[in-house]
Each structure stands twice: as C-alpha cells, then as structure tokens.
Design a protein around this nucleic acid. Structure first.
Lengths: 351, 351
DNA sequence: TTGAAAGCGCTAACAA
DNA sequence: TTGTTAGCGCTTTCAA
C-alpha cells in the first residue's frame, strides 16, 4: 500500500486515491465529498481528513460529465463595458447564494456573441445569462430552445427568453422630478438616438414632462461623449440656454458638460445636467455627475432568481428592480427660481 | 433506424449518434471531428455532413476528461480594471492562434484570487495567466508547482512563475524624452507611491533626468485621481509652476489636469501633462491625454507564447514588449523655449 | 483505413 | 451504513 506523496507534480490525486487511503469504497468517498447523506459520522471525518492530507480536489470535468445537473450558470458580457463588469461581479455573489457555479464567456470586437454562447453550451451550462445581448432575436430563440436564457439590460421580447432590466421609465421620472423640484422648467432631453433603451427613455421623458405640463424638447444625441458634445454644442449656440439637460447616459452627459464649459456656463449655476448609469465616469471626483443608477446588484439577483426559477420549472414572475437617483454636484437649484418654496416639494402640482 | 430530430429539446446529439447515422464506428467519427488523420476523404466528408445535419457539437467536458492535453488556458483578471479587459480580449486572439482555448475567472472584492485560480485548476487548465496578480509569492509558487503560471503586469520574481510585462523604464524614458524634445526642462514626476510598478517608474524617471542633466523632482502621488489632484494642487499652490508633469498613470494625470484647471493654467499652453496606460480615460475626446501605451496585444501575445513554450517544455526566453508613446493634446512646446531649434532634436545633448 | 475495447474520474442506481 | 455495478461522452491504444 503506497501513500501518494503530497504535492507530487505527477498525477493529480483522485477520489480513488482518497478512498483507498481511507479504506472505503469510491462511492462512499464520493458521498462524503459531496456532503450527501449516507455515511456515518466517523467515516465521514476520517475520509475528509485523508482528503485534506492528500490535497484532494474534485475534478469538475468528471463531476460535470457524470451528473445530470451541472449547476453551472453561463454568463456572456462585453469586456469593454465597465458596467457589465459590475453586473458580473454581482452575479457571482447571487449565484453562490443560489448554489450555482458561474462560467464566464466574453464578447468583444474579435469574439462574436454566438461564439461566446456556444462555448458556454459546450461547457454544459444549465442556463445562460446574457448581458446586453446583441444577437438577432432568431439566434436568441435558438439558444432558448436548448437552455433557459435570461437577457439583462436589453429591452427585447423574444419567445422563450426572459428579460431582466431596471425600469427606465422610473429612472427618467426620478431624474426629471428631481430637476422639477429644484425649480427647473425648461428641461431638455438629449436622447440616445438609436441606442439600446433610447426609445424607452425618450418616451418616459415625454410622459413625465407632459404630466407636469412642461414643454417637451428632445434633441438627437447618442451613446457617446462626442454625441453629447455635438448635440449640446448646437443647443447652447443656437438659442436661449435651458434650465437643465437630461442626457441619455453618463458618457453623453460628459459631452454635455464639456460643451457647457466651452460655452462658458457654470454647472450647476447656469445649467443643471443629469446622466444615466452611474458609471465610473460619473463618480470621478472632478465630475461628480448626478445620475440614475441601474443598481447592478439588484439586476444580478433578479436575473439569477429568474434562471433558478426556470431550472426548477417555476414561473419566474417579473422582477423589475427600481433604478435609484444618485444626486451629486451637477444639479442644483434653478437660478430663475429664487422664489421657490424650500419645502422640497415640487412647486408645480401634477395634473 | 431512427433519425434524431433536428433541434429536439430532449437529449443532445452525441458522437455515437453521428457515427450511427453515418454508418461508421465512434472512433472513426472522433478522428474526423478532431481533424486527425486516419480517415479517407470520402468518409470524412460524409461524417462531417451528417454531423452538420444533426447539429452535433462535441461535449467539451467529455473531451477534456478523456484527453491528456486539454489545451485549456486559464486567465484570471479583475473586473473593475478596464485595462485587464483589453488584455483579456487580446489573449483570446493570441490563444486561438496558438490553438488553445481560454477559460476566464474573475477576481473582485467579493471573489478572492485564490478562489479564481482554484476554479481554473479544477476546470483542468494546462496553464494559468494571471493579470496583475495580488496573491502572496508563496501562494503563486504553490500554483506554479501544479501548472505553468505566467504573471502579467506585476513586477514580481517568484520561483517557477514567468513574468511578462512591458518595459516601464522605456515607457517613462519615451515620455520624458518627448517633453525634453519640446523644450521642457523643469519636469516633475508625480509618482504612484506604493502602487504596483511605481518604484520602477520612479527610478526610470530619475535615471533619464540625470542622463539629460536635469533636476529631479518627485512628488508623492498615487494611483487615483484624488492622488493626482492633491499632489498637483500642492505643487501648483506652493511655488513656481513647472514646465511639465509626468504622472504615474492616467487616472493620476486626470487629477493633475483638474488641479491645473483650478489653478487657472492652460494645458498645454502653461503646463504639459503626460500619463501612463493609454486607458479609456486618456482617449476621451475632451481629455486627449498624451500617455504611454502598454500595448495590450503585445503583452497578451508574449504571455501566451510564454505559456505555450512552457507547455512544450521549451525555454520561453524573455519577452519584454516595448511600450509606445501616444502623443495627444496635453503636451506641447514649452512657452519659455521660443528660441528652441525647430529641428525636432532635443536641444540638450545626452551626457 | 477501419473497428473493438478500454478507460478518463466521477456519480447514481441498486443490492447487501 | 456500506459496497457493487454501470455508465456520462469522449479519446486512444491496438489489432484487423
């Protein structure tokens, strides 16, 4: 009977080694390692002790291959998007709580989403979480026929694909109402043009402004700084300066801030600016952008819960995490509204 | 003889299904799928055709379990670091070229590096690439006893761990020489304090300044915007304005830019500023920071080549990708150096 | 060129 | 409570 050397670089310790050293069968050792019941207290501790001594680590490939349930959750995300990283981070936590393991697959300019999903499927994941999927609905439907698919952030309606995203309407409402409560009336929306979720945010802006009886003004922007810079540049050059601007997202808002600076305007003295996403950019100490957070942890929890429900054939219900307004330094009281009551209530009642 | 239905949600198509449908043995089908030789042209195309029809996808778990070589390359990276994302992206490309598959494992505030590495080992990776590892040298040495480990970006010297990082000395030299060639003399370095690679960059700055016979001035900074803002704030408030500042990294440089703005200084009119990393921040249209790029693609190629060499028991040699200066809008001619020759050569000869 | 047989390390029935 | 017996889907000798 030979004892395998600890840390031997040769062959990895297997369950059979542990079983032999502990003097039990492989099956029993397996039971102990999995924490399943069917083993006596004495044997259990002896096997665990031996496993520790031998430095045994279960081989996930073999385990996955054999067991019907892999408890593996696949996640696709885009490397270049910091916000995706925040969501992934939270997915790890939520998955662990749900007893699932996470397998990551990145999407990038040189790695198509289809490729990312296929590699997950080959790895044996039981469900796929796709962060801001860009694939065609038909492609998603094909994946959804094989495993439960949950789409995060993107507002799509595909048969068999669950969608989890925060309520953009509520987010834009929070931003606009914040500005209204500060006394602003002429509030412009620089939109996201054709970007994901742009139309939802545009519609929400219109609805809230109408509700307060304020004039709607939408300028075509985009998802990048250049877009915000250009749109705000034209806006500020072409006529009277508005009270406030709600930008499609943080990057767009950053362009707006730069345009304001070039126009010699103080923010928030002359103009208030709000973004959307609460990205790293918004938190920069010299930016301090007021923005709407999509609450990555909530989003992740909802998505994991949704996948878990599908795996146990339950109805996931519809979870829509509410976004959260984060007030920083780019919004302030309207300069024209010095007579506004300081009660904190919006001075204009809703219709 | 029953034909499995295409897209049947039930059982996945296996190699046995393909073999049966094509009228060959499983072993032969395996040969064809792997592209190994040992199959006739006619059989080969027939098997491939059938596999395609049936929508066959090899099960990576089973393949991995059986074959001695998994051809799997594990990568640990930090989600919150955009630059890591760039490197990962390039690793995908380099690994594919080397015929290796990539398995990602993220590190974050709630997911320790040890955990990330262990999950890779359990997945059966043949080598591990760690981007900016933070583990203790002893821990890395333990991993290195099991598989080849390559550390990216971090300047550590651990037995058995290969290190791949760009030449910080050359990078700082490029930045300083660029400033000197613009006529600057009073060049200050706001350093990275205790950050990774800070001491290398500090030493390189000293060496190059000495070489040109210029006075060395190092201010304690840090890796974040706050650090740059504070350090530059004190510097600019406390005495004569220097010609130029070389910051530890881009984020630090951003703080410097903000401090300059607050001090009413024009950049690059009154003060030139250079960063390090060529991060997203540096590329923002309203920032346009002159900086030093670490060339993620080169770094990734070198790391993959190193791992591949270890796997075939070759000597990886030492690959040190040269960093690249990226000149943008925050550096310009020295205002005091109007008499400088416009030949483009530095007016001060090296010693 | 092809096919049969033997596992990779593990789990899940079952029987003892 | 324990051990036995079959595989999961694939690759890899080895012999035909």
């Amino acid at each position: 009977m030979q004892e395998p050397l600890k840390g031997t670089p040769g062959r990895r310790t297997t369950l059979a080694d542990v079983a032999a050293a502990a003097g039990v069968s492989r099956a029993l050792a397996s039971i102990v390692m999995r924490g399943a019941d069917g083993a006596g207290e004495a044997t259990r501790s002896r096997v665990l002790e031996v496993a520790r001594e031998l430095g045994y680590r279960p081989d996930s490939r073999a385990r996955l291959l054999r067991s019907s349930r892999t408890r593996l959750l696949g996640v696709t995300f885009t490397l270049a998007e910091p916000f995706h990283g925040e969501v992934v981070e939270s997915i790890y936590a939520a998955a662990e709580a749900a007893g699932l393991d996470v397998v990551l697959s990145a999407v990038g300019p040189r790695r198509a989403e289809a490729r990312a999903v296929e590699s997950l499927l080959d790895a044996g994941v039981e469900a796929v979480l796709m962060i801001a999927p860009s694939s065609a609905p038909e492609a998603l439907a094909v994946y959804a026929r094989q495993v439960p698919v949950v789409s995060l952030l993107s507002p799509l309606a595909v048969e068999g694909v669950d969608g989890v995203r925060s309520d953009d309407g509520a987010g834009i409402r929070a931003a606009v109402e914040h500005l209204v409560s500060l006394g602003h009336r002429d509030i412009v929306h620089i939109d996201g043009a054709g970007a994901v979720a742009a139309s939802e945010r545009r519609a929400a802006y219109r609805a809230v402004m109408n509700e307060y009886g304020l004039a709607v003004r939408v300028i075509r922007g985009g998802a990048g700084e250049e877009d915000g810079l250009r749109a705000a540049g034209e806006l500020l050059a072409g006529g009277p300066v508005p009270d406030a601007i709600v930008a499609f997202n943080d990057r767009c808002a950053l362009g707006v801030l730069e345009a304001a600076r070039r126009a010699g305007l103080e923010v928030p003295g002359d103009l208030s600016v709000a973004g959307y996403d609460d990205s790293q950019l918004a938190r920069l100490s010299h930016v301090q952008l007021t923005t709407v957070s999509q609450e990555a942890p909530r989003l992740a929890e909802a998505a994991v819960a949704c996948a878990a429900a599908r795996l146990s054939s339950e109805d996931p219900g519809s979870l829509v995490p509410p976004p959260q307004l984060v007030v920083r330094a780019t919004t302030g009281p309207s300069p024209r509204a010095s007579s506004v009551s300081s009660s904190g209530h919006p001075p204009i009642p809703r219709r």
